[in-house]
Amino acid sequence: MRAWVRIGKKNRLRYVSHLDMQRLMQRALNRTTLPFAWSQGFNPHPVMSFASAMAMGWTSEYEIVDIRMAQDVTAEQVTKEMAGALPPDMPVYEARLVDDRKGAPMALVESAEYRILFESPDPEAVFGAIQSYMGEEHVIAMRKTKTGEKEADIRPMTYALNRQEDGSNAVIARLALTEKATLKPDLLMQVLASRAGTQAEGIRVHRLCLFGAGGVPLMEL
């Protein structure tokens, strides 16, 4: 049996790195009485994985940890215990139990929805660029990779893009997030801004949701 736990990461903790997150989660599990499973081998550790690593500086309300249990538990038990074991700025929203045969969340994620806050000398121009961007079939951008820069067509990786309707300088974007194709919010904003003839800076990314096949949120998949 495995448990998926959806947690958040509030502003105060946005600089907790992915490596720190893993250590934190392991210690958090140790603080619970949950019957989680240990890996075999020389250096045993709890068997768990994250749906998707987060960049330093991001906040989120949709991080999913997959934890293997050695004995049966209930979702309520998992939610309650994890909430007590994580720092206050890492809220636990829900947990669900999944079958051992279900794929790892990491392999199931296809896209993510973000709220992207930005600063710009001309925010309206950035918003104005959304329509023409979405009207294109291809938008070629230089993507940074481990080995340097590479051209990529980012338009097909942009599933939805809208202005946040509350007057703040933010867009809501649903972007591809798979091993093969991932569009980073920063790059999208750069492209939008340059198409609008301005800049977008001070970008703050907040993850709203992770989706699997068919655009179904991961926790419902």
Partner: peptide, 23 residues
Amino acid sequence: VDGLLSRVEKPSRYMGGEFGSVM
């Protein structure tokens, strides 16, 4: 403070909010 964190090395050392810190 928050506004400075993106500009320094190891921002997490100024972050606070650790598990077990007393509020």
